[in-house]
């Protein structure tokens, strides 16, 4: 028994080293901007760059838009598949895997070829960027929502609501969405993290997003990009932490309610 415990700790420790060592050395490197001294100068430079905030803000905005549209697209679709078309599930799941099958570069050129000509003329609109981001988010959003839907008895809950006179709008907003809250959130945070770091779409469509900015900085300076990648890493962590905190909050509320 004791022996197993020790081994578990050792394996955990090795895992932690594997995970943290690159981070620590990145941090160490980023703090060496001024010779012979450890400082946060690189971080100061990064954060005082006006462009950093512009680019970051731009990406946050599009990430939020992507999340909203992707949720509005995925939740009703996944719900409908569960309730009426369970046979179509493998097909829909396959479609959502598109970003893993078709490389982003190919997707972007496909977009441009299709939409940049009559009758669309959409080549210069951010809508192409959003469309790309939504496709990127599909595997994560769909899987999260799909798992959430499996955990509730979609069919019976829908029928119960129908027999009480509810229409589709009411069922989606009052029964399905609230019960998928945690599932949707996990998809949302993954999408957020992905959109924040996305490079290909934004770069090929020449949009001032955060991903290309990191790339530009990386080719121009030595220390700041290390600081920036740490910052974006921390932001991703913060997102996931937020998700777990919200999820845990719900469980606690339920347990507390039981007394």
């Amino acid at each position: 028994m004791k022996k197993i415990n020790i081994w578990a700790w050792i394996i955990l420790f090795i895992g932690m080293i594997y995970f943290f060592l690159p981070l620590i050395s990145t941090l160490e490197f980023s703090m060496k901007m001024i010779k012979d001294r450890y400082t946060f100068e690189a971080f100061r430079v990064a954060f005082t760059d006006r462009v950093f905030f512009e680019r970051f803000g731009y990406s946050v905005l599009w990430a939020l838009l992507t999340i909203t549209l992707s949720t509005l697209l995925v939740v009703p679709t996944a719900y409908w598949v569960h309730w009426k078309l369970p046979k179509a599930r493998p097909f829909v799941e396959f479609v959502t895997l598109m970003p893993f099958v078709v490389p982003a570069v190919v997707l972007t050129f496909g977009f441009i070829r299709l939409y940049a000509r009559p009758p669309f003329f959409l080549n210069d609109r951010p809508i192409l960027l959003i469309a790309g981001y939504i496709i990127l988010s599909l595997p994560y959003m769909f899987r999260a929502v799909d798992t959430g839907l499996r955990a509730i008895d979609v069919r019976t809950l829908t029928e119960a609501a129908l027999s009480l006179g509810a229409g589709w709008g009411t069922i989606l907003t009052q029964v399905i969405f609230p019960n998928l809250r945690v599932a949707i959130l996990s998809g949302v945070f993954l999408t957020f993290a992905i959109v924040m770091g996305e490079f290909t779409f934004a770069s090929l469509l020449a949009k001032p997003a955060f991903g290309p900015y990191m790339e530009e900085i990386g080719s121009m300076r030595a220390y700041t990009p290390q600081a920036l990648s740490l910052v974006s890493f921390l932001l991703t962590w913060a997102s996931i932490g937020l998700l777990q905190w919200i999820g845990r909050g719900r469980v606690q509320e339920q347990v507390a309610g039981a007394h």
């Binding site: 509730i152 008895d153 019976t156 029928e159 027999s163 009480l164 006179g165 509810a166």
Partner: peptide
């Protein structure tokens, strides 16, 4: 349609709205 019928239904699995 089901939601216009004057019918109440009780299911084996209760089907209460968990939220």
């Amino acid at each position: 349609p089901a939601n216009q019928r004057d019918v109440g239904m009780v299911f084996q699995s209760y089907a209460l709205f968990p939220n």
